[in-house]
């Protein structure tokens, strides 16, 4: 069941086209990463979903309701980019406030703060928090009331690797319970392939919308096979495979995805000439650059 549906959504700011004919959906329990450079249209898309900005044409349905309607807001939680809170309030007071706004019992605030690892700072003012801690308060408020749809804008920026892993663990748990998650990021490496699908925006257009494996297939970027030859066989290996010798023992061969198995069997036939073999798929950066340059159509 699709909890977020955008079909052919277009938004213009005067002469600038922020979103052009974008269609995207997120179903129950699905985690979709929305990628794009700054200015690609991610923020506009998120604001349209939240009802903070009106779209010019196309249809948007947020948990079966119009964006920004009370029903949509009740079912949706949001973590803004660089989330900010009033510095005079403590983490506990802030979360109690958000609980009340969602008509939940404010006594649940401690449990939420504990869940994001802030129990020790709960009674300190948010003004004294680090960026990562504020981000955790933001995550805690987004967890209130088991939302059906979660919209997270650059949620992992400012988090250290350990916190990022904890963050994704919480996300996995939510998705397991059926929450649809849309999270934006400016880098593919940030989402750590912990999402089910990746949508890439480039200059307001959706240029990719697929699983990571699907993106790799479609991009058809060459795969690198790094072969470690024995000291005296490197030349021979390079010659037989028509590869490139890098140093005394290393030979590199690049191939397309479709040729991968064939090349591997060629390498395997060399038998004793080979010491080791490493297969290096195109990096996430390569992949992202390929699509965000507009290298493919959806």
């Amino acid at each position: 069941m699709s909890l977020l549906t955008l079909s052919q959504v277009t938004k213009r700011y005067d002469a600038t086209v922020a979103l052009s004919d974008v269609s995207l959906n997120v179903t129950e329990g699905e985690r979709v990463a929305l990628l794009g450079h700054n200015g690609a249209g991610k923020s506009t898309l998120i604001k349209i979903v939240l009802g903070l900005v009106a779209h010019d044409s196309g249809d948007v349905s947020v948990v079966h309701a119009p964006p920004g309607s009370l029903a949509a807001r009740e079912a949706t939680s949001y973590l803004p980019e660089n989330v900010a809170f009033h510095p005079s309030l403590t983490g506990l007071e802030q979360i109690r406030y958000y609980l009340r706004l969602r008509k939940q019992n404010p006594s649940g605030a401690n449990a939420l703060l504990e869940r994001v690892g802030l129990q020790d700072a709960a009674t300190r003012r948010i003004g004294t928090y680090s960026k990562g801690m504020r981000q955790r308060v933001g995550l805690a408020q987004a967890l209130i009331g088991h939302p059906q749809l979660m919209v997270l804008d650059e949620p992992t920026s400012g988090l250290d690797p350990v916190s990022r892993r904890e963050f994704y663990a919480i996300l996995d748990e939510l998705a397991g319970r059926g929450t649809a998650v849309l999270l934006s990021s400016h880098a593919l490496t940030e989402v750590e392939a912990r999402t089910d699908r990746i949508a890439i925006l480039s200059r307001g257009e959706l240029v990719a919308n697929d699983t990571l494996a699907g993106l790799r297939r479609r991009a058809a970027l060459p795969i690198q096979l790094q072969i470690a030859a024995r000291p005296d066989t490197a030349d021979k290996v390079a010659h037989r495979l028509s590869g490139r010798r890098l140093n005394g023992t290393r030979v590199d061969v690049t191939c397309q995805h479709a040729d991968k198995l064939e090349r591997l069997s060629e390498i395997a036939q060399l038998g004793d000439l080979i010491d080791d073999l490493e297969i290096v798929p195109p990096s996430l950066e390569d992949l992202y650059a390929h699509f965000s340059r507009g290298g493919a159509s959806p």
């Binding site: 939240l50 009370l70 009740e74 949001y78 900010a84 809170f85 009033h86 933001g138 919209v151």
Partner: peptide, 14 residues
């Protein structure tokens, strides 16, 4: 200015 309004407006409060 503080950037706290967007979050408040995303809540089910008019």
């Amino acid at each position: 200015e503080r950037g706290t309004l967007a979050l408040a407006l995303a809540y089910p409060v008019s």
